[in-house]
Simulated assay, not measured.
Amino acid sequence: MASPKHLVLDPNDTRPPTIGHPSAFPSERPNAKATKTHPSKAGNENASIYFVGTATTIMEWEGIRIMTDPNFLHNGDHVHLGPGVGSVRRTNPAVDLDKLPRIDAVLLSHYHGDHFDQKVEASLRRDLPIITTPHARSALTSKGPESFTAVYDLAPFQEMNVDIKGDADMRKRPSLRVTGTPGKHVPPTKPPDELKELFHAVPPTNGWMLEFGYTTDNGTFASGYCIYITGDTLLVDEVKEIPQRFPDKHIDLMLAHLGGTTLPSPSAPVTVMVTMDAKQGVELMRCIRPDVTLPIHNDDYEVFVSSLEDFRNEVEQAGLQGGVVYLDRGEEYRFRVKG
C-alpha cells in the first residue's frame, strides 16, 4: 500500500464553506429536530451525524465538521444523471446551501449530480478540502479558474490521515483515518445496447471506512469509532469482500446508500438498478455486521424505487430491527468516540 496522504484541519478556521461574505453564514448547524442514539448502549456521546437528505450528512467531532456528498437541490429541482437522463428531486434538504454552517472538509463518494449538484459546484469555496475518487478529482481540478484546489483522491483500500490541529503539547491528537472501499454503481454485466452510453457515463464510485480516533507522539493511530459508508453501490463481490480485507475491523456504524435507483427511469422499457434496494441492504447488513445501520439515500428522487418502508419490512422479516436507526431529514444520531 502506498504511503498515506495527509491533511490537517483547523477547528479555529472560521471561513464559510461557500463563496460569500462570512457574516452571512451561521457558525453552528441548525438544532436537530430529534436526537437518536445506539438502541441499547447509549451514554457519554461526544460526536454526531446530522442527516441533511439524500446522502448528505454533517458529522461533528472535536470541533470539526465533515460533510458527505453535498446535495442541496429542492423539491421540483432537476438533476442530470447521464446522457439524456435526469431526475426531479421530491424532498427538501434539512438546511439550505446558503445557510450551511462552517464545514472543514467534504467526503465525496463520486462525481454525480445527486451527490454534488450544480448549485453546490458553483457555490463551494474553491479551497475547501475534498476527499474523493480519482475520477472526481480529475473533474474538479480541470475547470480552469473555477477549479477546486484542495482535492485528494483515494483508490479502494488506499488510506488518508486527517489530523485535527490542537495544542502543540498534546500527547495524542484527535485524528481521522479515511480508507477508500470498493463500490460498483452499475451492474458487473454487459449492458443492453440501449444503455451502453449510459453505463459508460456513470462515474466510478467509492465507499469509505471512516475512523475517528487519536494519533500518539510516535505516529500510532488508535481508532475509537469506525463508520463504513457504502457509497452508491450494488452488492457486488468486491463489496462482500470488505470483511476479509478488514478482518480485525469492528464496524460501529454503517451508512447505507439504498433506494434501488433505477435508470434511465423506473417507467422506461429497459432499465438498470444502480444502487442497493431493500433486499440487498439487508444482505449487506448480514455481511458487514455493523453495530448500527443508518439507511440513507432512499426517497429523495423519482429514480429511487425501493422505499424506506420496503427496507423496514425486510429488516423486520430478518429479525434485525434492533440494529437499525431511522433518521428523518433534520434529525441527528449521536455516538461516542472512545479514546
Results as ranks from 00 to 15, higher is better:
Pro191Asn: 04
Pro101Asp: 03
Ser23Tyr: 02
Pro243Ser: 14
His257Ala: 10
Gly322Gln: 13
Phe304Glu: 15
Arg65Tyr: 03
Asp248Thr: 14
Leu176Ile: 11
Glu316Lys: 13
Pro243Tyr: 07
Val239Phe: 09
Ala168Gly: 04
Glu211Trp: 00
Pro192Ser: 06
Ser223Met: 09
Pro266Val: 03
Ala222Asn: 14
Ser40Cys: 08
Leu253Arg: 01
Pro16Thr: 07
Thr133His: 06
Asp310Glu: 05
Asn12Gly: 08
Glu241Trp: 03
Thr261Lys: 00
His250Leu: 12
Thr230Pro: 02
Asp104Thr: 08
Asp252Gly: 11
Arg289Phe: 09
Glu238Ile: 05
Ser306Asn: 10
Met254Leu: 15
Val315Gly: 08
Phe51Tyr: 15
Pro4Phe: 01
His297Asn: 13
Val178Trp: 07
Ser175Ile: 02
Gly86Val: 05
Val95Leu: 07
Thr261Phe: 02
Val106Lys: 00
Gly323Ile: 00
Tyr326Lys: 08
Gly43Leu: 14
Gly183Arg: 01
Ala122Phe: 04
Ser306Cys: 02
Gln321Gly: 11
Tyr111Gln: 09
Pro30Ala: 12
Val52Asn: 01
Glu332Asn: 07
Gly259Met: 03
Asp169His: 15
Leu253Gln: 06
His78Phe: 14
Asn92Lys: 11
Ile103Asn: 04
Ser23Glu: 05
His297Tyr: 07
Ser265Asn: 05
Asp96Val: 10
Val282Cys: 07
Lys172Pro: 06
Asp69Arg: 02
Tyr152Ala: 10
His185Asn: 12
Pro83Lys: 01
Asp299Tyr: 00
Pro203Leu: 00
Leu81Tyr: 01
Val274Phe: 02
Thr293Ala: 15
Ser306Ile: 00
Ser3Glu: 14
Pro16Ala: 06
Glu241Cys: 07
Lys99Trp: 03
His38Trp: 04
Pro191Glu: 11
Ala24Thr: 14
Thr189Val: 08
Gly144Glu: 14
Val315Tyr: 03
Lys196Asn: 14
Val162Glu: 01
Asp237Ala: 12
Glu211Cys: 12
Arg90Pro: 10
Ser267Pro: 04
Thr181Lys: 01
Ser3Tyr: 01
Asn161His: 12
Glu283Ser: 10
Ser142Gln: 13
Tyr333Leu: 12
Leu198Pro: 15
Arg177Lys: 15
Met1Leu: 12
Asp127Lys: 06
Pro290Trp: 01
Gly319Val: 08
Asn313Gly: 12
Asn31Lys: 11
Phe221Pro: 05
Val106Asn: 07
Val88Tyr: 03
Ile131Tyr: 11
Met160Lys: 02
Ala268Trp: 02
Lys99Gln: 15
Glu194His: 01
Gly43Ser: 06
Thr261Cys: 10
Pro204Gly: 14
